Simulated assay, not measured.
Amino acid sequence: METQAATRVVAPRTSEGFEYTFPAIRGIQAGREFYVSMCPLRLIPKIFIFDEDELTPELRAQRVLNKGRLPALAKYILDNPDDYVFSALTASVDGDMTFDSHATEGPGMRTGQLHIPMDARFLINDGQHRRAAIEQALKENPDLGDETIAVVFFHDAGLARSQQMFADLNRHAVRPARSIGVLYDHRDEEAKAARLLSTRCPVFKGYVEMEKSNLSARSAKMFTLSALYYGTQALFQGLEVKPDEAAKLAQSYWESIDQTIPEWSMVRNRELPAQEMRRDYIHSHGIALHALGRIGNSLFRESTAVTKWKKRLGPLEKVDWSRSNVDWEGRAIVGGRVSKSHQNVTLTVNYLRHHLGLPLSPEEQRVEDAYLRGDA
Score class of each variant (00 low, 15 high):
residue 118 M to W: 11
residue 47 I to A: 09
residue 204 F to N: 02
residue 348 T to S: 13
residue 66 N to E: 09
residue 304 T to G: 10
residue 168 D to N: 10
residue 192 K to Y: 02
residue 135 E to K: 13
residue 308 K to Q: 05
residue 288 A to M: 13
residue 172 H to P: 00
residue 297 N to I: 00
residue 277 M to A: 11
residue 191 A to Y: 03
residue 357 G to P: 01
residue 6 A to P: 10
residue 322 S to M: 12
residue 160 A to P: 05
residue 45 P to M: 14
residue 76 Y to I: 08
residue 332 A to S: 11
residue 128 Q to N: 15
residue 67 K to G: 14
residue 124 I to C: 04
residue 203 V to A: 09
residue 328 W to Q: 04
residue 227 A to W: 00
residue 304 T to S: 15
residue 226 S to N: 08
residue 147 E to Y: 12
residue 235 L to K: 04
residue 141 N to L: 01
residue 58 E to H: 05
residue 241 V to Q: 09
residue 67 K to Q: 15
residue 326 V to D: 13
residue 118 M to R: 15
residue 350 N to Y: 01
residue 73 L to H: 07
residue 191 A to M: 07
residue 107 P to Y: 15
residue 101 S to V: 06
residue 323 R to A: 07
residue 71 P to V: 13
residue 197 L to R: 04
residue 342 H to T: 00
residue 208 V to T: 12
residue 345 V to G: 04
residue 27 G to P: 00
residue 184 Y to S: 08
residue 376 A to V: 02
residue 355 H to Q: 09
residue 172 H to C: 06
residue 291 A to G: 09
residue 257 I to K: 08
residue 375 D to P: 03
residue 11 A to K: 13
residue 211 E to L: 09
residue 223 F to N: 06
residue 105 E to S: 15
residue 107 P to L: 03
residue 102 H to D: 10
residue 104 T to A: 15
residue 146 D to K: 13
residue 78 L to R: 11
residue 162 S to Y: 02
residue 67 K to P: 03
residue 130 R to A: 10
residue 30 A to P: 04
residue 204 F to M: 10
residue 147 E to C: 06
residue 106 G to D: 14
residue 332 A to T: 00
residue 119 D to K: 14
residue 318 K to Y: 10
residue 96 D to R: 10
residue 197 L to V: 02
residue 353 R to F: 02
residue 266 M to N: 12
residue 249 L to R: 09
residue 57 P to G: 12
residue 28 I to Q: 15
residue 347 L to E: 06
residue 268 R to T: 02
residue 158 G to E: 03
residue 165 M to Q: 06
residue 78 L to T: 08
residue 13 R to G: 09
residue 312 R to K: 15
residue 354 H to A: 13
residue 93 V to Y: 02
residue 310 K to T: 13
residue 138 L to E: 01
residue 174 V to G: 04
residue 180 I to E: 01
residue 37 S to T: 13
residue 164 Q to R: 04
residue 212 K to G: 09
residue 240 E to G: 12
residue 234 A to W: 00
residue 240 E to P: 03
residue 75 K to L: 07
residue 146 D to F: 02
residue 126 D to H: 12
residue 236 F to I: 03
